[in-house]
Simulated scan of single mutants.
Amino acid sequence: MARSAFTLAALASAAVPGLEVDHAGQVADPDYDAAVLGGADGRAWLVRVPRTRSADTRLRAELAALAALTQGARSRLPFAVATLAGRAKVGPTFAAVTEHFPGAAVPVAQIPVEPEGLGFRIGLAIGAVHLLPPTVVVDAGLPMSGPVESRRGAIGVLERAGATGLLPLAVESRWQHAIDDADLWQFQARVVGGFDSSSFVAVGDEVVAVQGWQGLAVGDPAADLKWAVQSERVADAVFAGYWSAAGTADRRLRHRAALLSELDLGRWLLHGVDTKATDVVDDAVELLTNLAERVHGDMSARIDSPTAPVLTIGEVEDLLEQTPTRQAG
């Protein structure tokens, strides 16, 4: 049973000495019991208690990332980043209280794409993160990877998905061609956050805060941009902002983002196979078949050939979270 806003406010008060809560409002979240609290000092706070083990793991990773983002790092960013106000043990898990900022994330399909609008400013925000010094990650002992690891991960998904016998030949060839393209993997690893469209809190056309830092690492910058390629117009705006902030040295960034986005379908298929969830397998096969049809069955189609939306990383993660209740026996 979900904890009430009143209960969550009491947990927050225990976690943050001196916190005086004026009002509390429940937040609908499939992974957390959550509420936004209004403090007597006029500040707003978000209190969350994980409902599942995976949510607990993600929240711990997020808090580790917030701790790694020192004041020096934050001063380089053109948006706010929450800080941890306090935490308290709750049974086998815990309650975490972090700052809450006004605004809301905008679904991909609704992101404005006019010149220097929200899409452009999201790109600027991602670019600012990618320009952070790697020591932010190194000093915190967070994960680090580069081109070799990124390509190796892509090979692993392709080989395992191909071994299922369920990967359409057109898609398999498309991915293989991209992976074999040495130029695609010529990039400088950057500080990345593991972002998707839900990470960017906006008020109007301004990105006022960025949330969801559980993927903070040094890695492939394309991983933070793959969600944007689901819409060509949104991608145009986001990449324009990104290149304005971070430069254009990574010439194949957009193509690599497209590959990583498509590979998420392979991961979804493998998740269904590994968990023997036939409905997930069927769903993944349908999505991959649709992708194959969009490249017109041309086995030589390159990854930079435009396709319609596939599946956003947020959608894949949501599906992964839902799977345990959908598994076949």
Score class of each variant (00 low, 15 high):
1 M>R: 10
8 L>K: 02
12 A>I: 09
16 V>C: 12
17 P>I: 06
18 G>K: 05
21 V>W: 06
29 D>K: 14
29 D>T: 08
30 P>C: 04
30 P>D: 09
30 P>L: 04
31 D>P: 01
41 D>I: 04
42 G>W: 11
47 V>T: 03
50 P>K: 15
52 T>D: 13
56 D>W: 06
60 R>G: 09
61 A>K: 12
63 L>D: 06
65 A>P: 10
67 A>E: 14
68 A>P: 05
75 S>M: 08
76 R>K: 10
77 L>I: 05
78 P>M: 11
82 A>M: 05
90 V>A: 08
106 V>Y: 02
108 V>L: 14
108 V>H: 01
114 E>C: 05
121 R>N: 13
124 L>N: 04
125 A>Q: 05
126 I>V: 15
127 G>F: 04
128 A>L: 11
138 V>E: 15
150 S>W: 00
153 G>Y: 04
156 G>W: 07
156 G>M: 10
157 V>A: 13
164 T>C: 11
165 G>E: 06
166 L>I: 11
170 A>R: 02
171 V>N: 03
172 E>W: 09
177 H>M: 11
181 D>K: 09
185 W>C: 03
186 Q>C: 10
186 Q>Y: 10
187 F>Y: 08
191 V>W: 01
204 G>S: 08
209 A>W: 01
215 G>L: 04
216 L>Y: 03
216 L>I: 07
237 A>W: 01
242 Y>M: 01
244 S>D: 13
245 A>M: 15
254 R>S: 10
256 R>C: 00
257 A>F: 04
258 A>N: 03
265 L>V: 08
271 H>T: 15
272 G>L: 08
273 V>K: 00
273 V>C: 02
275 T>Q: 11
276 K>I: 12
288 L>C: 11
288 L>K: 10
292 A>M: 14
292 A>F: 14
295 V>Q: 06
302 R>A: 15
306 P>K: 07
309 P>A: 15
313 I>K: 08
314 G>D: 11
317 E>M: 13
320 L>Y: 14
321 E>Y: 09
323 T>R: 10
327 Q>S: 12
